[in-house]
Amino acid sequence: MKLLVDAQVPGAEACFGPLGQLVRMPGRAIDAEALRDIDGLVIRSITRLDAATIDTAKAQGSPLRFVGTCTIGTDHVDQLALARHGIAFASAPGCNAEAVTDYVLGSLLCLAERQRLAPG
């Protein structure tokens, strides 16, 4: 199996390397031509995977059968076009929950500290 993974996805070699041949490239450079001989694709929100790209890749004989995004949002992927071609799709809901919690707690601590230091 040949997997194309966005170059900015951390830990891709450890996570996906055992599954087959791993190819890395910048997310903005991923297009129909890049998908020509790719079985699986792992992207971030920077990569726009629209119907034209998917349709062109499949028309050129791409064996693409899985697309995964390392993000919560899915608006950068045309899921209907994937479904038309029988391509499985997965996103990562909840993947930033810990970071959001850290940010909120840090903000609350900062606010509490500022209120203690403010006169009055």
Rank of each mutant, 00 (worst) to 15 (best):
D75T: 06
R48Y: 02
A52T: 15
I72R: 11
A99K: 03
T71M: 01
A88K: 14
L35H: 01
G120H: 09
A34E: 04
A29G: 05
D6H: 00
I72E: 12
G94A: 08
E98H: 13
I87V: 15
M25L: 13
T74K: 07
G68Q: 06
L4G: 12
V67I: 04
G17Y: 08
G61F: 09
D55G: 06
V104I: 15
D50A: 03
A7M: 11
L19G: 09
A99C: 08
A59Y: 09
P93Y: 05
L64A: 10
T47F: 02
P119T: 07
D50R: 02
V42W: 01
Q60P: 07
D55K: 03
A12Y: 04
L117C: 10
D50K: 00
I46R: 00
A52V: 15
R36W: 06
A52M: 10
A12Q: 03
H76G: 03
E98N: 12
A81S: 09
S62N: 06
A51Y: 07
L3Q: 11
I30W: 03
A92L: 03
L35N: 04
P93D: 05
A92H: 01
L117E: 14
Q79Y: 02
A34K: 04
V100I: 14
G20H: 05
R28N: 08
H76M: 05
A59K: 12
A118H: 15
I72W: 12
E13G: 09
G17K: 02
V42D: 01
L19E: 14
D37I: 02
A90W: 01
L111D: 13
L35Q: 05
G27N: 10
S91F: 01
R116D: 12
A88R: 14
A51M: 07
V42R: 01
F16T: 04
L82T: 10
T53S: 11
P18W: 09
K58W: 07
Y103A: 13
L49Q: 03
L117K: 15
F89M: 06
R36P: 04
V5L: 04
L35S: 03
G11Y: 07
V100A: 12
E98Y: 10
I38A: 02
A7E: 15
C95W: 06
A118D: 13
I46P: 00
R114T: 07
A29L: 13
E33S: 14
A99R: 06
A81M: 07
S62C: 03
R24S: 03
T74I: 14
L35Y: 07
G61Y: 11
V67S: 04
A112M: 15
L19F: 13
D39Q: 10
L19A: 15
P93L: 05
D37Q: 11
Q60D: 13
I30F: 04
A14W: 08
R116G: 08
Q60F: 10
A59N: 10
I38R: 01
L111H: 14
A32K: 02
A7G: 02
A97Q: 11
S107D: 11
P26V: 09
E98R: 15
E113A: 12
S45G: 08
E13H: 12
K2L: 05
I43E: 00
V100W: 05
C110S: 14
T71Y: 00
C110T: 13
F16G: 04
V9Y: 00
Q115A: 10
R116L: 15
L64S: 05
R116C: 14
Q79C: 11
S62R: 02
G27P: 10
